[in-house]
Amino acid sequence: MDNIRQERLPGTNFVPVAISGLVWAYRFREGYAPEALEAGDVPGALLAEDGWLWLHFSLTDRLARDWISSLEQLPEEVRSLFMASDEPLGLQAGGDVIYGVIADFHSELAGESDHIGRLRFALSERLVISGRRHPLRSVEEIHRAVQGGLNLPVAGQLIETIIDRFCDAVARRVAAMTDELDTAEDRVVVDMATTERSRLINVRRITVRVHRQLSSLSSVLRNWHARPRDEKDKPAMHISSKRLADRLESLDHDMHTLQERAKLLLDEVAARQADETNRSLRALSIITALLLPGSMVAGIFGMNTKDLPFTDTEGGFWFAMIIGVAATAVFYWVLKRVGAGLRL
């Protein structure tokens, strides 16, 4: 339902034919299946007295942000949230509206993405407006579930479900990365460390990135749960912040464990690579040292000067070779006597 313009029908009561940037609109009523709305149905649904409305926007469309900023049902500070360029995680209350920014994975056609985006939302008893700059996986999953008949009785359950789906996605990544680390650890143990470095770097990169989001989001929900309660808090806007914060913190602990485990394995891989490099350098040094006496003898006999021995002697070449080998053997014996380690 992405549209690129906003038009109005002529008449006394102007009704939008298209709301620019509106990805989808749904009306939820108890006892009824979710109802997909066209742009022209949105004003009437906003005035209805039963159920609640979910409007989801693409915030890359400037006209979509303009439309939200003109929505009188939202306080000024809530509308400014959708106009701001930065997207720090947070959860606040303004009047009868809960609004904020939560994290979610990007939705990619090729499969699961490790990039994390932001979902901005405003939640009231009768209306939820959400917006993103990039398609988000958990939001898309809930959209498909709603298309399949999933009914959310109250508005607050939508945000709660989105965070739960985000937690499910993190849990899947924890399981997948645990398997990757198990495989990498087995290979490192059997001395195949070099092949596992890129795998470990990728796991550590993901854990660091996701850890920041989990820590921030759990802190946001924990602070929200600890806020002073208002007697006017509406049940329809309730978010199970404590349960979600506990789940996020548990996942964050798992992610931190994976991060430390990946770091230790990377350290072990680096140590083994350094040891392999040292062995190679040691072998090269020993070979170079053993070749020095012979090279010196060959250099002497290669000088174009008078009085070189064996120049006129029959079999002089072989005498020179014997001297070179003997010099190497004497040098090797001297190194052994002084206790120099010659093991490769």
Rank of each mutant, 00 (worst) to 15 (best):
I287Q: 08
V97D: 09
E7T: 14
G95R: 12
L152S: 00
V17G: 03
L74I: 05
L284P: 00
T313H: 12
S280M: 11
R187K: 11
G149N: 06
R243C: 07
F14W: 10
I159Y: 04
N13W: 10
R199N: 14
V154I: 09
L46C: 09
E231R: 11
E185Y: 02
A84S: 15
T257E: 11
I142C: 06
P293Q: 08
Q92C: 00
G302D: 02
N278K: 12
A226T: 02
S107M: 05
T183Q: 14
S280R: 15
G40R: 02
V188N: 04
R279E: 12
S80C: 01
G44V: 01
M303N: 01
E35D: 06
P235L: 13
A33N: 06
S70G: 15
L244C: 08
L292R: 02
R222V: 05
T311V: 15
P34Q: 08
K263R: 13
I287E: 06
W52M: 02
A329T: 13
M296F: 15
H106E: 13
V15M: 11
D307R: 12
I129D: 00
G299I: 09
I201Q: 05
L308I: 15
D186R: 13
S240V: 04
S250N: 12
L59F: 02
L81C: 00
V334R: 06
I142T: 02
A155G: 07
L74N: 03
H253I: 09
R209E: 05
E87S: 11
D2C: 04
V174S: 04
R197L: 14
R229W: 08
R187W: 03
